[in-house]
Design a protein around this nucleic acid. Structure first.
Length: 678
RNA sequence: GGCGAGGUAGCUCAGGUGGUUAGAGCGCAUGAUUCAUAAUCAUGAGGUCGGGAGUUCAAGUCUCCCUCUCGCUACCA
């Protein structure tokens, strides 16, 4: 639990995927916590490096490139630079921000693959996958479209139908079409290498479930869930032309699967940073910590450690403080719906306020469960905490010092019991912050750190220097000296959280100290020291600014919202096509939920000429008991299909709203059972 | 359906190994104060700790059942 036995720290932050810009969810979940952590460690003088970079391989990038008519490299170049700049702008202090399209990464990933290959770690398997004969290439799932077997959407992708949300495999699609050439793909055998996670399961159980019980509950639980469900071998290669070529013979057209090479990017980046990289990756006295979001838990807790373990010479992560997700104004952040706050846009609207966002995201970080970011909360934390508590204390201290002592730190004349208690309290607060940080409890840490500013305000309120000055100027010297010491200590204590503001504050008081170990020192500022020029540390955020952000979000929502969610018009058909469908009016006689399913209801429907058993996935929208007597439209000549052991003869027609709710298409009351619909 | 994570004051959250009147911040009310960006300080009101049963001298904290939210997974128009 206590990290004392570690000599040095290797901190990694999830490599952002280089096919889009960063939003505040990324910052809150991964980069703000990791940056606070490494800044704190540096300040303590610990040996630490912070590693990050762009993850630049994988199918989505090739798709984006294809859509825009540019090369994958151009896509990743664009977002690598954009995201690198966003991190820099927000003071995320990586020691290196690398990228997985670098040569050194190709070498590192290839080497590790080779090592595992030579050790016979992989299993080779042949399977059938779609192949585009015109383009002479295997097709990734996303490159295949076809008709969804479930909802009939003709534009479903090979991995998922975006209309009904079902996840698919390419062979499920009806009439599959290659999006590359438009031709009909054929199934062809292909050979791939698999990482046999199942063989490492006993070891993983031991290592995680026994030896890392201290991991956060959400992380530990997620791992347990995966382990209990049983691990399967996972393909480490793919047929694709964008990525790291599989470094063995007879592997033309095959690259490493992006999940295999991405985490190795941490290693390559370390190599790029320092020739001394091995002491970080191979010395047991290094503490490896991965900061990630919850979507990455399986890769960092199960797959990557398995790779490292199989390789044999690397250390394993000591902790993986994964955060949950941040919602935005009560809704999931969504890139495709443009429901997000983009980092570069934030800085345009709130220039110079990166610390405000860092603060709010830390204080409200989704550490244990999904959390909600609202602009109103952003405003109130800024106005009530940063401005009113921290900024205000600093300001009143500096203003009083200028007013009474011309900006020169006055000397201590005599210490009262209260003065001593306040000075001692500084160290107590600091050690509380330390404890929280060591346990990755960042929201608690920042809360505790702010207590020092609260203490300062309380001290001023109780000692009332503005009153005492009229009767006892000597006493005021001590009071302001102590207030200034608190201010100087604040610059140290809050620096990991608010680096820009503390830099500014150091300028206000002309203080140079940086070391964490100085915290608690009662004379950081010597008597006679001249303060610098000061201004306001934080400013209020007005309602109009908040409303503008809300309006911007709502505008985006209506623009790419509901209308685009409606399915695209289908291609024209003939009357003949239509008449092939035998649509009938019917009435539900019986209905019961199919046991052990979430969505299925089994119904008996009266079609006049006969009674049919039909299974339908509507249990999430209708109670079985309410259904008997309901009139429905039935597609009567659909090929029967056995679902959960029940033969379903026909299909009940339902309308589906953009948000996914289902509603019966009901014939009017006069329609008799079995009446044809045409 | 299976697995996992959650459901604690109006809001956001803390609550090692069960033990006196369940905590913090914000919000709210009242009072004090004016050095300060009408900021600050003090006091107070507010909780059947999702519901039920059980173990125990004693449960927010352990066991079981139920319920709601989120994630993964299965099944599925």
């Amino acid at each position: 639990m206590t990290p004392k036995h570690f000599k040095r720290y290797l901190v990694t932050s999830a490599l952002p995927y280089a096919n889009g810009p960063l939003h505040l969810g990324h910052l809150a979940g991964v980069y703000v916590p990791s940056d606070i952590y490494v800044r704190y460690l540096r300040q303590r003088g610990r040996e630490v490096i912070s590693i990050c970079g762009s993850d630049e391989h994988g199918v989505p990038i090739t798709l984006k490139a294809r859509n825009e008519g540019i090369s994958p490299q151009e896509v990743v170049n664009r977002y690598h630079e954009l995201n690198k700049k966003a991190f820099r702008d927000f003071g995320i202090s990586f020691d290196i921000y690398s990228r997985t399209s670098n040569r050194i990464h190709y070498e590192t990933a290839s080497e590790i693959f080779k090592t595992l290959y030579d050790k016979d770690v992989f299993v080779e398997k042949t399977s059938e996958q779609y192949y585009d004969e015109e383009a002479a290439t295997f097709l990734a799932d996303r490159y295949i479209t076809g008709t969804c077997p479930h909802c009939g959407n003709p534009g479903a992708y090979g991995d998922q139908c975006e209309q009904c949300g079902t996840s698919l495999s390419p062979t499920d699609l009806i009439n599959p079409v290659s999006t590359i050439s438009g031709s009909q793909p054929v199934l062809k055998e292909t050979r791939h290498w698999y990482l046999p996670l199942d063989r490492y399961e006993p070891w993983l159980r031991q290592w995680i479930l026994e030896q890392h019980r201290e991991w956060k509950p959400n992380v530990y639980g997620q791992c347990k869930s995966w382990l209990d469900q049983g691990l399967q071998p996972r393909a480490v290669s793919r047929d694709l032309d964008w990525g790291i070529p599989v470094p063995v013979e007879n592997s033309e057209g095959k690259v490493l699967y992006v999940w295999f090479d991405a985490p190795i990017g941490y290693i390559s980046a370390t190599k790029e940073l320092t020739p001394d990289w091995e002491k970080y990756w191979k010395d047991k006295e290094t503490r490896l910590v991965h900061f990630i979001g919850k979507d990455n838990i399986v890769f960092h807790c199960i797959i990557f450690p398995t790779i490292l373990k199989a390789e044999g010479s690397y250390i394993l992560p000591d902790n993986v403080p994964a955060n949950e997700f941040l919602n935005l104004e009560n809704d999931k952040i969504s890139t495709s719906r443009n429901w997000a706050v983009w980092l570069h846009e934030y800085l345009e609207d709130f220039p110079g306020k990166q610390d405000v966002l860092r603060y709010v995201l830390c204080a409200n970080a989704p550490e244990n469960k999904d959390n909600d970011f609202t602009w109103k909360d952003f405003q109130s934390r800024n106005n009530n905490e940063l401005v009113a508590i921290l900024g205000n204390f600093v300001n009143r201290t500096i203003v009083l010092t200028h007013k009474y002592f011309d900006g020169i730190v006055p000397e201590i004349t005599a210490l009262t019991g209260q003065d001593k208690a306040v000075l001692e309290e500084i160290s107590t607060i600091a050690s509380g912050v330390e404890q929280s940080l060591e346990l990755f409890r960042f929201r608690e840490a920042v809360q505790k750190a702010m207590d020092l500013a609260r203490l300062g305000n309380k001290y001023l309120a109780e000692t009332e220097p503005w009153k005492v000055i009229k009767t006892d100027a000597e006493r005021v010297r001590t009071i302001l000296n102590i207030s200034l010491q608190i201010t100087a200590n604040l610059t140290l204590l809050l620096d990991p959280f608010l680096p820009f503001s503390m830099e500014k504050l150091r300028g206000f008081i002309q203080f140079e100290g940086r070391s964490w170990e100085l915290i608690g020192t009662p004379d950081l500022l010597k008597a006679g020291h001249m303060l610098g020029k000061a201004s306001l540390l934080f400013e209020k955020i007005e309602d109009e600014q908040i409303q503008a952000q809300l309006d911007k979000l709502m505008k985006n929502r209506t623009e790419n919202g509901e209308t685009e969610q409606l399915p695209a018009p289908k291609e024209e058909i003939t009357f003949d096509d239509f008449t092939r469908m035998d649509l009938r009016s019917g009435t539900i006689l019986e209905a019961e939920k199919v046991p052990k399913t979430k969505k299925l209801i089994k119904m008996v429907v009266d079609l006049g000429f006969e009674q049919r058993t039909i299974v339908s996935g509507i249990a999430e929208y209708y109670e079985a008991e309410t259904l008997p007597g309901k009139k429905v439209t039935v597609l009567a000549n659909l090929t029967p299909r056995t679902i959960r052991g029940i033969e379903s003869k026909g299909m009940i027609l339902l309308s589906e709203n953009p948000e996914g709710t289902l509603h019966f298409v009901e014939p009017s009351a006069e329609a008799k059972n079995g009446a044809a619909i045409n």
